[in-house]
Design a protein around this nucleic acid. Sequence first.
RNA 1: GUGGGUGUAGUCAAGUGGUUAAGACACAGGAUUGUGGCUCCUGCAUGCGUGGGUUCAAAUCCCAUCAUCCACCCCA
Length: 419
Amino acid sequence: MLTQAPRGTRDILPEQVSKWIYVENKFRDICAKYGFEEIRTPLFEHTELFKRGVGETTDIVEKQMYSFDDNGGRNITLKAEGTAPVVRAYVENKLYANPQPLKLYYITPCYRYERPQAGRLREFHQFGVEVFGTNNPLADAEVIGVAVDLFDELGVKNLEVRINSIGCPDCRKEHRKALTEFLTDKLDLLCETCKGRFDRNPMRILDCKNESCQANVINAPRMMEYLCESCASDFDVLQRNLKAMEIDYIIDPDIVRGLDYYTKTAFEIVSKEIGAQGTVCGGGRYDNLVEEIGGPSTPGVGFGLGIERLLLSLENNDVEIEKRDSTDVFIAVLGEEPEKVAIKLLRDLRCIGIKGQMDLLGRSLKSQFKYADKLKAPFTIVIGEDELKENCVVLKDMKNSEQKKIEINNVIQEVKTRL
RNA sequence: GUGGGUGUAGUCAAGUGGUUAAGACACAGGAUUGUGGCUCCUGCAUGCGUGGGUUCAAAUCCCAUCAUCCACCCCA
C-alpha cells in the first residue's frame, strides 16, 4: 500500500508534464486574449460553502465531497469544484468594487469521491473561467468562445457544443408544475431512480438514459416551452452571438446541469471519442449564486473544463506534443583533470542558457556517448588529458558525426552559434 | 453506490495443477588501449497485485482484499 497512490489519483510523470505545460500555456494565452485574469483560491474551503453554493441535494454534496474536521474543529472540504470558491473570493475581497465585468480564470485540482473510470478520477484538474457583473448574453458567448478557441488551437476536432436554457427560478417553477402533472400518471413506468427524482428534481428524469423512462418522457413539457420573456430573449441573443462568432452549436433541451446554482444558459462541450465520460467542458450562468453566498446581487457565467479529458481527446485526435529535449550539449570526460575543466565549462554554458549535462556515474567514454545519444544531445564535447595539453576540447556534432578540435576559450561561442 | 472484465519483471506478454517461470522491447555492462546510433554477447521475477485456503504439489483451483478497465449513476 505504501507504494501505491490512493485510488483515483495519478502521478503526472515528466513525459506527461510537458503536455500539461503545453495546454496550460495555451489556455493562459487564450484567456489573456479575452481579457481574463488568473485567480488562485485555497485547495480547501469551509464545507458550508459547497453546501450553499453547489446545493444540498446534489450528488456532489451528498456523497462525493472529501470533508473532515481540522484540529480546530472546523469542518473543511477539499475543493470539489471551482466556481463556489471563486465566488467566495469575489465576495470576501469585495471584487465587486472593481470595474465590472470582472473576468477571472483558474487552473486547479478538484476532489470528488467517485468510482474512477476512464476520464473520471478522484483528483482531477480543471481549467475554469468566470465572468461577474453582467447579464448580457454576450458574456455567455465569450465564455463558450474561450473553450472553443482552446480546442481549436490545440487541434481537437469532433466536438459538439450543446446549449440549453434552464430558465430562471420563476419560469422553472412553472415548468416544474407542468412536468409533475405530466408525469404523475406515468410514475409506475419509470425506473427506481426516477421515481425518487420525481419529488426532488423531476427535471432530471428528462435526462435519464433508461429506455422505458426515455420512451415515457418523449412528449413531456420541455423547459424551453416555459421560458419567461427575459429568459427566452436572452437565449435568442446568445444564439445570435454564437453565430456572429462563427461557433457551431446544437440546442440540446436535455442538458440539465447537476449543480443547483445554474440559471438560464447551460452548455456542454462533448467528445464522443473518449468514452462514457465525454463531457470535456460544462458550464452556464449563475445569476443568483453571488447573492446566495452572501454578496450583493451579481450575475455570473462560467465553465469548468476537465484537463484530463482534454488530454484524452488530444490523444484521440493524434495531436502530438513534442517533449522539449533536455540537453543541448553533453560533456564527456576522461580523467580527473578533465573533469574539473568540464565542471567549470558546464557551469559557464548553463550561465548563458545552454542546457548541458555530464556523466554522474563515472562511466566509460563509450557509455558516456551512449548516454549522450539517449539524451538526444545534438552536441557532445570530449575532454581528455590529450586535449588539455593543447588547451583544447573536441566538439562532436552527433547528427553527422563530424568533430573538430576547438580552443577551450572559444567553445562557448562555438556551441552558442551552432545551436 | 450497482453490475461485468482484467491483474505474470520498467513495458508488451507465453504459461490453464508437477522439477531451475518462455520470448520481445526497455534498462545496465561489454565486443582489447579515448567516441553514440546498426549488429553480437552478458546481466535483469527464490517471483506470478496482496492475504488466506484446497492439494503430496498452485502463476495455474477456491475465498477475501486492493488496483485497473467497461457499463450504470453522476460530472470535468
